[in-house]
Design a protein around this nucleic acid. Structure first.
Length: 416
RNA sequence: GCGGAUGUAGCUCAGUUGGUAGAGUCCCAGAUUGUGGCUCUGGUUGUCGCGGGUUCGAGCCCCGUCGUUCGCCCCA
């Protein structure tokens, strides 16, 4: 038996409806905010990601599906969306004729990681990006949108964590101080944190190692190093969220893994998940356009993991009883009436009903059973008697009541 | 990439100190000579993840391998 590739999953009937529900909801909510959908290729030139995400991140170092195509070009299956989206915005000059460019997406992404609950090698993310505004209003709008979406999905138990990384200067100042502090405590740090101290010291802050945590507790926090501009920006974001009634927690150790973030960063977490408890996150990335060869353009956005969101929805039993496989099941009492059943079903479909009939040439009883299993609201019954009278019997499956009617009148009935 | 668990019917699982497999559910049919759900009766389904080894004999023990899962790491 050939198996699917490790870390990939078939989305079967029963599961796919959950994805459709997610996509439908995000489509509705983003529309409320004036966001437009964008779809970009599944693969990009490798540099799109290597130049943006960060040379020191595991994503770029170990997790990308990269290959050389037949033309000798290095190609990478997209491990995330933002960089690819920015490439597209630059290439198509989408910021040219709008004040604020608002985009959303939903699709598959690829990372070569060890599979785990809520972590697959092919997974799905959706998100939104707000481009061309450097103001706190844009940060607030993106967080409001993400928050609105979560609520709309029926999720009420979650944390929104918020922090600011400040502008480049603030971050550099803080980094210097942090490295100094961590070096003073270097002996007590875990091996991993020691190496991160060289490569990406900010990430020591969200280490799960207990010894590290203790050291981090008394480490300098970035908010104290924000310059005036950065501080004003962050204060304004918080003020806007407060006014809009969005609850959040300031988490000074929240840094995010991707290099391109600055100023506002945030994450959504749920205890319904395991170790992978973040189901969404985002932030501002004012420097990314330049890194990818565009002109300086401020932007802010978020992404959410579809599989993780579905784990939460399953845990809180949203999405249980959306069963509506069919409105009408057309039953016939003998094989010679199968043709009539098929034709009747087709006529009813022309009136926008979901209609099913038997394909197995089974008994009357078996057809009724299938009707029940598909939760048909009505059965249209064709028997010899009905056929000879050019009529059918209509049975309401919920109440059990039934009545015979002339076939020409069938189209005038409402099967709601 | 590292550490721990685990893999038996479509699904959930049992399988006693090694003696070549079972339950529930699902599905199919019947009881009901044209009427579903409830009930009862009967029936189908397995390379016991895969490959080696030990043994007269392996679902059970050993080794390897693949998958899953829980943590680390990473991140959504």
């Amino acid at each position: 038996m050939i198996q699917s590739v490790r870390g990939t999953k078939d989305l079967l009937p029963g599961e796919i409806e959950k994805f459709q529900f997610l996509e439908k909801t995000i489509r509705n909510v983003t529309e409320l905010y004036g966001y437009k959908e964008i779809r970009t290729p599944i693969f990009e030139k490798t540099e799109v990601f290597s130049r943006s995400i960060g040379e020191n991140t595991d994503i770029v170092n170990k997790e990308m599906y990269t290959f050389i195509d037949k033309g000798g070009e290095s190609i990478t299956l997209r491990p995330e969306k933002t960089a690819a989206l920015v490439r597209s915005v630059i290439q198509n000059n989408l910021t040219h004729d709008v004040a604020s460019l608002r985009l959303w997406y939903f699709g598959p992404f690829f990372r070569y990681e060890r599979p785990q609950k809520g972590r697959l090698r092919q997974f799905h993310q959706f998100g939104a990006e707000c481009i061309s505004s450097a103001n706190a209003e844009a940060d607030a709008e993106i967080i409001l949108l993400a928050n609105h979406l979560i609520k709309k999905l029926g999720i009420n138990e979650y944390d929104l964590q918020l922090n600011s990384l400040g502008n480049e200067q603030s971050r550099a100042d803080y980094r210097t101080e942090l490295v100094k502090y961590l070096n003073e405590n270097k002996e007590s740090l875990s091996e991993e944190s020691k190496s991160r101290l060289e490569s990406n010291p900010l990430r020591v802050l969200d280490s799960k190692d207990n010894a590290d945590k203790k050291i981090v507790e008394s480490a300098p926090i970035i908010i104290d190093y924000l310059d005036n501009e950065s501080k004003l920006h962050f204060d304004k974001v918080r003020e806007l969220l407060d006014k809009a009634g969005v609850k959040y927690i300031i988490e000074p150790r929240l840094v995010r893994g991707l290099d391109y973030y600055c100023h506002t960063v945030f994450e959504f977490r749920s205890s319904a998940l395991g170790a992978q408890d973040a189901f969404g996150g985002g932030g501002r990335y004012d420097g990314l356009f330049e890194q990818l060869g565009g002109k300086q353009t401020p932007a802010v956005g978020f992404a959410m993991g579809a599989e993780r969101l579905i784990l939460i929805l399953d845990a809180i039993n949203v999405l249980q009883n959306i069963k509506n496989d069919c409105d009408i099941y057309v039953v016939c009492s003998s094989e010679k009436l199968l043709d009539s059943a098929l034709v009747t079903a087709e006529q009813l479909r022309n009136h926008q009903y979901k209609v099913v009939s038997d394909l197995q040439r089974r008994s009357f009883k078996a057809q009724m059973r299938e009707a029940d299993k598909l939760s048909a609201k009505y059965c249209v019954i064709i028997g010899d008697d009905e056929e000879s009278r050019k009529a059918v019997t209509v049975k309401n499956m919920k109440t059990g009541t039934q009545a015979e009617i002339k076939r020409d009148l069938l189209q005038t009935i409402s099967f709601k």
